[in-house]
Design a protein around this nucleic acid. Sequence first.
DNA 1: ACAAAAGTGTTTTGTGTACACCCATGC
DNA 2: GCATGGGTGTACACAAAACACTTTTGT
Lengths: 219, 219
Amino acid sequence: VATILRKFPSLTVDPLVFCFHEQQLKVLLYRRSEEPFQGELAIPGGFSFADETTIQALKRALENKTPLKLGKLSYIEQMHFFDDNVDPRGHAVSLTYLCLIRPNDVPDTAYLTSAHQLPKLAFAHNKIVERGLEELKRLLLTTTIASSVLDREFSLNDLHRLYQAALNQQLDNRNFRSKFLRFNVLTDTNKREENVAYRPGKLYRFTQSAVQSLGELKL
Amino acid sequence: VATILRKFPSLTVDPLVFCFHEQQLKVLLYRRSEEPFQGELAIPGGFSFADETTIQALKRALENKTPLKLGKLSYIEQMHFFDDNVDPRGHAVSLTYLCLIRPNDVPDTAYLTSAHQLPKLAFAHNKIVERGLEELKRLLLTTTIASSVLDREFSLNDLHRLYQAALNQQLDNRNFRSKFLRFNVLTDTNKREENVAYRPGKLYRFTQSAVQSLGELKL
DNA sequence: ACAAAAGTGTTTTGTGTACACCCATGC
DNA sequence: GCATGGGTGTACACAAAACACTTTTGT
């Protein structure tokens, strides 16, 4: 039996956590305290061993290496599997997860960097972030995933700013509003922003907490 | 070192091969000759060991268990990674690949079944096919992936029948044609069908061999 | 009254959809 | 000339895109 077990590559999991912070789309990183790549920035991943799920491994890595708790994540979805990792310690394969956390749940001590201007990361982690960014954009355009990026209540302009930040482009405010309202996925809370030094915006929430599909793809 | 290696789950790869055959969307299977699930139908997967890529493992499994050659596949894309497999032999994780092969390249001896009316398969393979079907539909609606499902030259009606079969719904023929032509991805070969007992259709091919995106997702 | 951001409408252009008939070919 | 599938056009409703000003609130 041992001879069979020896033959498999080591499995790692990498949580790619995005959040919307200071009007920017950001990525959660940590600074490695050990070799390899000591001192460099990396995605806070770790090994996934036999007889545990990859989510259990994800929790361990995330909570050991960052101040986030798995339970605070608002969304977790499996993403690409990399089988061409260059880990100096041997053949490793790595499963990446796309994760989201709401602005209110981000600890102050979390290390965040802008997703659109990444520094050089350890391993091939830049590739992972690129890929996750594409996936996140796709989800924003086709689903109500924004409900997991924003706090539960938000103004239409918050939503507008999120889309502009994540897609990294300007979107006409009037068209954006009317289009989004036409999807019929938002509920007016009858509340308004508070403690702002200007006209307070109306607060909305997503009617359904589950992520649902938006514009249908038609042929 | 050995103690670390022992701890990882075994890794398997599963090639989910679709093809368009007898006007139907079909899936490639094989009948298992060994335990577990001896005698049952399954996706022709196998183990992926350390120091080989998952594609190498895919090739070995596919060519050992079916009459197909990896080199004949017209498209290979990584799909979902399952970490909740129920393999009686222990904790296994499995990476699935969505694969396509053109009608002309399908050997007569391949075991194919209709993708929309699957029998019960071994392991949790029904789930894999369901998922692959969703992914294939998505690709057909958003990319020129059809170029890897059809032979290089085909009539617009072939294309129409492919979409109807894969999406499992009727599509208005006139609208389908004008829409697809408007994408500007097809080239008229100036050839026609031969040896048909009716008016022969014009043959087209995709202008670019690489898969490209079709309708843009807009907001 | 001023600053700051919230909120609103119209026009033009293009796409989605529904629908029925003639055409070209082989036999 | 007939059977078979190939191929074409129009009208309507709605969505996409471009575009600038008024309103509300706090200070």
